[in-house]
């Protein structure tokens, strides 16, 4: 961008371009400091975006991305007749919506309730506990869970002691999605709750004092002060989540699922991973899935943002 501005400047020196050039020159060190970051995004984000063209090509290793021949929409035709792909799309949507239904409200409720606790030490302790799982990888969490929920694991042992039947948590198709959603809530609720808690803390305390003097009980204060105070951030978070509906938790599922439950838990990301690295690879086909997912996500994000602008006057983009 700098260069093109420079060249137009030399061809047609007008007053405006001179001042622009001067402004750029004055900030030359800023551009220099910005360079490493921009280089990172150019290389690791924009080159892959450029590589998306692979979705319309037949990839040949010796020709590279740009050299491979164009084949139009063949990759997509191939993809859309693959039954596994549609199963993956369905699973992604189902799991993502279950997550919104279950995992989205829990942190909000948690934040409101935590805010009502006045025993400072207790509050800080439980908050510390709630947040901890967020900082562990899904590899660790899956390890703990696979052990706990296996046929001879702690939970099934407990069920057996209490005279219930053992449950095949990890291989039962009816249970598995719920297990995924529950684990997601277990790991991330505490972390997501911090944001709401911070929003609540930033509410003017005199509002509560005034309301209390006016005779508002705790329910009134939660309903008419706390909730309006966080509703905006709730809406924004919800939009963000809706905009990434095609992400249903790849790192979680790839570490926990197994062939017995592929049918209910194979999401788009795990599908791409499997067709790319566990079959004779067809990179064009895999790239087509990536593009499909990227475009769907973008469309959903823009739609939800548009709805939000219509409803509340402000969007997030």
């Amino acid at each position: 961008m700098n260069k093109s501005e420079l060249s137009t400047h030399s061809v047609k020196p007008s007053r405006q371009s001179k001042t622009l050039f001067a402004a750029i020159w004055r900030k030359r060190y800023i551009y220099l400091l910005l360079l490493p970051g921009l280089a990172y995004f150019a290389i690791f984000k924009y080159i892959p975006i450029y590589g998306v063209q692979l979705a319309f090509k037949k990839y040949a290793v010796n020709l590279g991305i740009t050299g491979s021949p164009w084949i139009g929409f063949s990759n997509f035709n191939l993809l859309f007749i693959d039954g596994d792909f549609w199963i993956a799309v369905r699973n992604t949507l189902i799991i993502a919506y279950m997550q919104i239904l279950i995992c989205f409200p829990i942190p909000i409720v948690l934040a409101v309730l935590l805010n009502e606790i006045r025993q400072r030490k207790f509050k800080r302790t439980v908050q510390t506990i709630y947040t901890f799982p967020h900082f562990l990888s899904w590899v660790i969490v899956s390890g703990m869970v696979l052990n706990m929920l296996s046929t001879n694991g702690a939970i099934n042992n407990l069920l057996a002691v209490l005279n219930f039947d053992r449950v095949q948590f990890l291989t039962d198709k009816r249970i598995f999605r719920w297990l995924l959603v529950f684990l997601q809530a277990w790991k991330e609720s505490g972390w997501n709750c911090i944001m709401y808690l911070a929003a609540i803390t930033s509410i003017d305390p005199t509002l509560y004092e005034a309301a209390t003097i006016d005779g508002a009980n705790r329910w009134h204060r939660m309903r008419y002060i706390t909730w309006p105070g966080i509703s905006m951030i709730v809406v924004v978070t919800l939009i963000m989540r809706m905009g990434s509906i095609m992400d249903a938790g790849f790192e979680q599922i790839i570490n926990i699922y197994n062939p017995a439950v592929y049918e209910v838990s194979d999401i788009i990301d795990t599908y791409v991973f499997r067709i790319t690295f566990q079959r004779p690879a067809n990179f064009g086909l895999s790239a087509a899935v990536g593009l499909f997912k990227g475009i769907t996500n973008c469309v959903l994000l823009l739609t939800t943002n548009w709805i939000c602008v219509r409803l509340s006057g402000t969007g997030i983009l």
Binding site: P48, I49, G51, V52, I65, T276, S286, A287, G290
Partner: peptide, 14 residues
């Protein structure tokens, strides 16, 4: 780049 990315394959090839 937060909202659109190239996906797994272009990244892998890069």
């Amino acid at each position: 780049t937060m909202y659109f990315n190239g996906g797994l394959i272009p990244y892998y090839l890069l």
